[in-house]
Design a protein around this nucleic acid. Sequence first.
RNA 1: GCCGUUGUAGCUCAGUGGUAGAGCACUUCCUUGGUAAGGAAGAGGUCGUGAGUUCAAUUCUCAUCAACGGCUCCA
Length: 598
Amino acid sequence: MPLELSASVISTEKISDWENDIYKSTFWHTSSHLLAYALENLYPGIKLGTGPAIENGFYYDVDFNDYNFSEKDFMKVEQKMLELAKKGLQNIRVEISKKDAANYFQKKGDQYKLEILDGLADGTITFYETGEFVDLCAGPHIPNTALIKAIKITNIAGAYWRGNEKNKMLTRVYGISFPDKILLDEYVSNIEEAKKRDHRKIGKELDLFYFDEEVGMGLPLWAPKGEALRQNLINFLKNIQRKAGYQHVASPHIGKKELYVTSGHYAKYGQDAYQPIRTPAENEEFFLKPMNCPHHCKIYASKAKSYKELPIKYAEFGTVYRYEQHGELHGLTRVRGFTQDDAHIFCRPDQLKEEFLKVVDLVNLVYSKLGFSEFQTQISLRDPGNKYKYLGTDEMWELAEKAIVEATEERGMKTTTKEGEAAFYGPKLDFIVRDAIGRKWQIGTIQVDYMMPENFDLQYTGSDNQKHRPVMIHRALFGSMERFIALLIENNAGKFPVWLAPIKAIVLTVSEKFEEYAIQVAEQINNKLDLEIEVDNRNEKLGKKIRDAQLQKVPYMLIVGEEEMNSQTVSVRQRDDIKNKIYTIEEFTNELIQNLKL
RNA sequence: GCCGUUGUAGCUCAGUGGUAGAGCACUUCCUUGGUAAGGAAGAGGUCGUGAGUUCAAUUCUCAUCAACGGCUCCA
């Protein structure tokens, strides 16, 4: 068919700028075409889905028919791609009528492309030609495949056609490419480094937490050091929350079905939840607590409230249980039983914005103290096209969404806004951080809710002596202890600051002869600071003990031998500074006190 | 839940159609050693689970469970 040339390829002047994100994704987009080209070449008869650039590389969704494409094929594909790239093929843009485009794919038998074509308007359709390969594509592309110098097929995965689980599952082939081999090597070694920070790996190495098949998937077991870490974080946050006017409450792990019927959760999630627990005699139905808010509403409702008391802020480190799909479980970041640092703020409508802002400020304070500098904030609004999916009136939603948008603007926060991502009862502001491998996880969340106070008929008496409805803010700063700790581990590679570290210090004896003095040192510090510093008096050489403590990432190693015993001192080696310093026990205790503070 | 890969000692991993190996960890002994691994000996596994093929299965086949990488989902 006649193909007409157009100049809409990215200009060559910009090609040197690998740091430019637009160029990079254009480069990867072209690479995805190259991948499809190579695959068609190697496996004739396959059908192509879509192949975009992604954050790190590109993919192409492919229907391989009966062929079981696997890792064994990667090398072959990489070689074919490089071979094609080296030919220096031009990427040629062609404008084409919908009819001609449809004819082309009909002849080729590419049902997926035809389906995409269906949704496109005539007159806007373009093809890109790369050698023998032609793809329906809006572009742009880099001008020539010769710019692609290094290619790696990274992995394969199943992906539903058009992201709909009712459709056929295609094979998604992921890859990454670079204009220089050195950049690929760098990328590969960065990935290797990132994998070393994986919380699942460090969790095991530092003896923090475990999973056990017999306990059940997605149900973490916290070992003593992991629990120490958890408690340090909980105490840290409890202190901050107390100062911010929160009151801590507690509620049981199960609740009667009727509670969740009232809250509205049962109608929404009852089918997908765990099965109810039934009492033998009364045959009442209970559910494992999936969230804490209904319980907090009941605490609010337990006693008449005056407008003078508001805002009321109930906080709870509440353990909740949710049925997560099997394939979704992931280390500590996605589990079936987890503890939320949950709180609910009940306030008057006129207090909403101020209270929302206070939570935003609290999030920023807590994250900065914990060294989370890089997080994203996302506003999630309801999908205007599918209002039936949400509870509550339009008016309530508009008020709530307005409060969030205004509050974030007032703080000058850079936010992205996503429609259709809201919770079913209200819009939210989420705080998102990345894990070691670059996956994004929501940690903190602030949600405005007019609905639940309504469902539970919550009231307060106003200055007019009339009954009024409070507004509720759901908020979690860590989100879940489990997920937050996972990300904390990956953020600092297991090197926790002293105040957070499960083990602050360890006393190492040069030989067994100094055990008595070592114990004396540990006890003196422990008694003064209420710690549990231990002594490593194993029958091992000092070098071995230092190595072990270093691998456990213990902040301070207190070495005691003949000299220290005679001078009543300790020789201190720090985790990140191998130059040792001599301290008296009192001097070291004071140093530790300083570092236990935030 | 779906697609794919994996499953051998506490951990990291070799290996084989004839019922298994290494390093670290663990136990005991020797050694009493000064800033990242002292030496020796020993113990430890129904090769994820169940079934099938076979004279014989940890190895081959099927099912199942779990982990991993994605997809869908996520109060």
